[in-house]
Simulated assay, not measured.
Amino acid sequence: MELESINSLILSEKLVGLFVEQEEEIEKAVKGNYYSLIFQVFAQKMTIFYNETTTWADYLGTKQKFWNDFMAAGLFYVLGNWVKNGCQDSYDEVVKMVVEFHE
């Protein structure tokens, strides 16, 4: 799928849906102490995504890397905790917040 053709709502739905689909694996990762390894892969994939879809006019070098890391860590932490805590907020509400975070 062309990354540029995905709007923020569809992308957020896919991202939140991925965490919902992986709920059991996230629980296993927490219990097995390899949750941080999953984060490393997630951060790498998010960096690739941002590099392919973001214009970095003001963010070069270290600033770009820090921004990528910050966004990946925030998304992973928030969505991971949402899933680990039983998805108490509705899927639609979480998707809406992810869209807002990226605006």
Rank of each mutant, 00 (worst) to 15 (best):
K31I: 10
V41G: 06
E24D: 14
E103M: 05
Y50V: 12
M1L: 10
S12H: 02
E2F: 08
G74L: 02
E25M: 13
Q22W: 05
V99C: 13
V95M: 08
A73H: 09
F19E: 02
A29W: 06
N85P: 00
L60F: 05
M71S: 05
L75D: 03
W67Q: 12
Q64R: 15
N85A: 03
T47P: 00
F19Y: 02
Q44L: 06
Y35P: 03
M46E: 08
Q44C: 02
G80I: 06
L79W: 11
I6L: 15
Y91W: 06
H102F: 12
G17P: 00
F70G: 03
F66I: 15
Q40E: 15
S8F: 03
E21F: 12
M97F: 07
A72V: 03
W56E: 06
L9Q: 12
T62D: 13
V83G: 03
T55V: 12
W56A: 01
M46I: 15
V99R: 12
L60I: 13
L9F: 06
F42M: 02
G17N: 05
V94M: 13
V98L: 04
Y35S: 05
N68M: 11
N85F: 05
K45R: 12
K63H: 04
E21W: 07
A73C: 04
L11C: 06
I48E: 15
L15G: 01
G80M: 07
N68G: 01
N7W: 01
F39P: 02
V20L: 11
L18G: 11
F66Y: 11
K96N: 14
I26M: 12
K65Q: 13
E100Y: 12
Q88N: 10
V95F: 06
K96P: 01
T53K: 05
E27M: 09
H102C: 09
K63T: 10
S12A: 15
F70H: 07
E2P: 15
K63W: 01
K14G: 15
M97Y: 11
Q44V: 04
D69P: 00
K65F: 06
W82F: 01
N85E: 14
F101A: 14
N51T: 04
V16A: 00
K31V: 11
Y77L: 09
F76K: 05
L3E: 11
F70V: 03
E93R: 10
E52H: 08
K84T: 10
M71Q: 09
Q88P: 00
K45I: 03
Y77Q: 08
Y34H: 15
V94N: 07
M46Y: 08
L37H: 14
K31A: 14
F42K: 01
Q88I: 07
Y34K: 12
E13P: 00
F70T: 13
D69K: 06
F101H: 06
E13W: 01
Q44F: 08
M97K: 14
M46L: 12
Y50H: 15
T55P: 03
E93L: 10
V78M: 11
Y77F: 10
F66P: 00
E4V: 05
K31R: 12
Y34G: 07
F42E: 02
D89Y: 10
F19K: 02
V41M: 11
Y77N: 11
G80P: 03
L3D: 10
Y59E: 08
E93A: 10
Y77S: 14
F42C: 01
D92F: 04
Y34D: 15
